[in-house]
Design a protein around this nucleic acid. Structure first.
Length: 451
DNA sequence: TCTGGGGTCCTAGGACCC
DNA sequence: TCTGGGGTCCTAGGACCC
């Protein structure tokens, strides 16, 4: 049982023999039922009880504990449809609390960075990270993976499962199998020989491969009778190119055959598009409310923009009308969108709000009920105003300082203390979040109390 | 009454240029 | 006088991911 950082590292680097067999080895570390685990961390009485977490607006179920899964609560199913089942079995329900999840996610990722080294960790999503284990001898991989798992749990309280294999796609496949059979694997599975990989491929339905979604799974089954990953792995790269999205498909086939074709990604890639979109708490038909919402989303998107030191040259706005409601089938409604190309790229909230709100005038139709709106920033370039721009009047640079100040205050308060007037103050359109737990780790007033 | 939000990569095809 | 071929850039849209 690893207890100190030093013992772990001494242990890890102890025997530095050459890796035989595969040239690369990746681990995927995946937090189990992440959002539910976060909620449980501060509510020990919910251990072994069914728990679910809802999406924004309390719309869908986006995380389920094992117990909730066992009861037959559907993933991504609408909350209202699962409600009877949830009531009947006394399932604990929470609105999503992204402050809490984000903070715990950071702790998990930091733990991995400390154990394995920052340069070998790629954060893939809020609850998953790839770890490059290529430098370690094959015979040590299992032990290293188990060490990672135990240490993350000790240091953060979050349980993870880990799959290890020569490629990312195979690591994901191993991870899935480890979770399928927790008792036997204790949430760690290493595929380090051809035989193990073959067995793993055979047990994996084609639709459960990372990179094969609904459409492809259906096509593969209906047209070529390909049901499992082993069958797909035997198809040619050319087949992948023709039928699974071009070079994406080629990579997929290669990865299934143990040839690493998806590299570790640089952590600091700047995004090429930034979006903020939300469903409304209830349908809205008033243009002022829509403008308020769009202004608020624009502020949020602009913050994200500044955080990565970019400026946007295109801003687009879309609204979604409420569809006809045919009781059971979910009608997505019609989306209308328009964009403006800005005269110069900018990261200033006020310069972005103006054109965004103007776009609403073009999109809005009186008498229509809207259920959703969004703002997208694209054409992103490095923000010239960061270092001061000689060719702009002084006031421009003051704007940058003002933006930084607002961002800093809002970040430290986490609740939009400072807003632009266009964002409104009543916010009838804002989302429902009736069941949110306290932000234990990011708000002083909501710290966990020990009795 | 009630179905999330935020992204990525890739291809095809049209416009335009020489 | 009857119409090539190659290149680039852009957009729309399809697929995927968590």
């Amino acid at each position: 049982m690893p207890t100190t950082l030093q013992s772990i590292q001494t242990d890890l680097f102890a025997h530095h023999t050459l890796n035989t067999g595969y040239r690369s080895m990746y681990a995927i570390v995946d937090c189990n039922n992440f959002y539910c685990s976060c909620e449980r961390l501060f509510k020990p009485h919910l251990d072994n009880k069914p728990v679910v977490v809802l999406s924004n607006n309390d719309g869908c179920i986006i995380s389920r504990s094992d117990e909730a899964k066992a009861l037959g609560v559907d993933m991504a199913g609408p909350y209202f449809m699962a409600k009877p089942l949830i009531k009947k079995h006394d399932v604990a329900v929470f609105s999503s609390n992204y402050n809490l999840y984000g903070d715990l996610s950071m702790r998990v990722m930091d733990t991995l960075r400390v154990i394995i080294g920052e340069e070998n960790v790629e954060v893939y999503s809020v609850d998953e990270a790839f770890v490059d284990l290529s430098i370690f001898p094959t015979q040590d991989l299992e032990r290293i993976a188990r060490d990672m798992r135990e240490t993350v749990e000790q240091w953060t309280g979050i349980k993870v499962s880990i799959g290890v294999a020569p490629t990312k796609v195979l690591a994901k496949l191993a991870n899935r199998l480890s979770k399928k059979n927790k008792k036997e694997t204790d949430c760690v599975m290493v595929l380090d020989t051809e035989e193990k990989i073959r067995a793993g491929l055979e047990k994996t339905p084609v639709g459960d491969i990372w990179g094969v979604g609904h459409q492809y799974a259906k096509k593969l089954k209906e047209q070529w009778f390909i049901d499992d990953a082993l069958q797909l792995s035997k198809m040619s790269e050319e087949f992948g190119r023709m039928h699974l999205g071009g070079v994406v498909g080629v990579r997929l086939i290669r990865e299934l055959n143990g040839i690493a074709s998806k590299d570790m990604q640089d952590e600091l890639v700047t995004k090429k598009m930034i979006a903020t979109t939300r469903m409304f708490g209830s349908p809205v038909d008033n243009i002022h409310d829509i403008k308020e919402a769009v202004a608020t989303y624009t502020s949020r998107a602009a913050e994200k923009l500044r955080r990565q030191y970019s400026a946007a040259s295109i801003i687009s706005v879309f609204v979604v009308a409420k569809g006809e409601n045919h009781n059971v089938t979910f009608n997505r409604g019609i989306t209308h969108s328009r964009y403006t190309i800005l005269p110069t790229a900018t990261a200033f909230t006020n310069e972005l709000i103006k054109p965004a709100v103007a776009l609403v005038d073009h999109l809005y139709k009186k008498g229509t009920q809207y259920k959703k709106a969004g703002v997208m920033l694209s054409g992103l370039v490095p923000d010239a105003s960061i270092q001061g721009n000689l060719f702009l009047p002084e006031t421009k640079n003051n704007g940058r300082l003002l933006m930084d100040m607002i961002d800093n205050i809002n970040f430290s308060q986490r609740d939009d203390v400072l807003k632009f007037a266009a964002s409104g103050t009543t916010r009838d359109w804002k989302m429902r979040q009736e069941l949110r737990s306290p932000r234990y780790t990011t708000r002083w007033e909501e710290l966990y109390e020990v009795k």
